[in-house]
Deep mutational scan, measured.
Amino acid sequence: MQRVNMIMAESPGLITICLLGYLLSAECTVFLDHENANKILNRPKRYNSGKLEEFVQGNLERECMEEKCSFEEAREVFENTERTTEFWKQYVDGDQCESNPCLNGGSCKDDINSYECWCPFGFEGKNCELDVTCNIKNGRCEQFCKNSADNKVVCSCTEGYRLAENQKSCEPAVPFPCGRVSVSQTSKLTRAETVFPDVDYVNSTEAETILDNITQSTQSFNDFTRVVGGEDAKPGQFPWQVVLNGKVDAFCGGSIVNEKWIVTAAHCVETGVKITVVAGEHNIEETEHTEQKRNVIRIIPHHNYNAAINKYNHDIALLELDEPLVLNSYVTPICIADKEYTNIFLKFGSGYVSGWGRVFHKGRSALVLQYLRVPLVDRATCLRSTKFTIYNNMFCAGFHEGGRDSCQGDSGGPHVTEVEGTSFLTGIISWGEECAMKGKYGIYTKVSRYVNWIKEKTKLT
Rank of each mutant, 00 (worst) to 15 (best):
E10K: 14
P333Q: 04
D223F: 10
E35H: 07
G13W: 06
F238C: 04
E193T: 10
R62V: 03
F251S: 09
C252L: 00
D131P: 13
K293P: 05
G427Y: 00
A9V: 10
V451I: 09
C119R: 02
E66S: 05
S49T: 10
E73K: 00
T158W: 03
N283E: 07
R162Y: 12
S423K: 10
D223C: 06
P301C: 07
N310G: 07
F71E: 04
P101Q: 05
N222V: 09
E208Q: 07
T426R: 00
E61W: 03
M65I: 14
N147I: 10
V269T: 07
E53N: 00
M6N: 13
E27S: 12
T218F: 09
Y330T: 03
N100K: 11
S255W: 01
N295T: 11
G105A: 09
V451E: 04
Y444G: 03
N313T: 09
C18R: 04
E418S: 10
K89Q: 11
V195G: 15
F87T: 02
F251V: 08
A266Q: 02
V353R: 08
E420W: 10
G412I: 15
V4G: 13
D338T: 10
A26P: 03
S406T: 15
Y330L: 05
V202K: 13
M394T: 05
V227G: 15
N5P: 09
E401H: 11
V353K: 04
F348C: 07
L19W: 10
L20K: 02
F360D: 15
N5G: 13
Y161R: 05
G398R: 05
T271A: 10
A317R: 01
V195Y: 13
A149I: 13
N38F: 10
Y312A: 06
P172G: 08
D33K: 10
K126G: 08
R373Y: 06
L346P: 02
V273D: 09
A308S: 15
T461G: 09
G105H: 12
C119S: 02
V374P: 05
E285N: 09
R43N: 02
Q185R: 10
T276H: 07
E159R: 07
G236P: 05
D322S: 07
W88Q: 03
V154K: 12
C102A: 02
L376G: 03
G349Y: 12
Q216D: 11
H282L: 12
L367G: 12
F78H: 07
E193Q: 05
M437W: 11
I284N: 08
N5T: 13
E82I: 05
V30T: 15
V56S: 08
M8C: 14
D405E: 15
K45W: 01
L41E: 03
F424C: 00
C396N: 02
V154T: 11
R140I: 08
N306L: 05
E231V: 14
N80C: 04
H415C: 02
I299E: 05
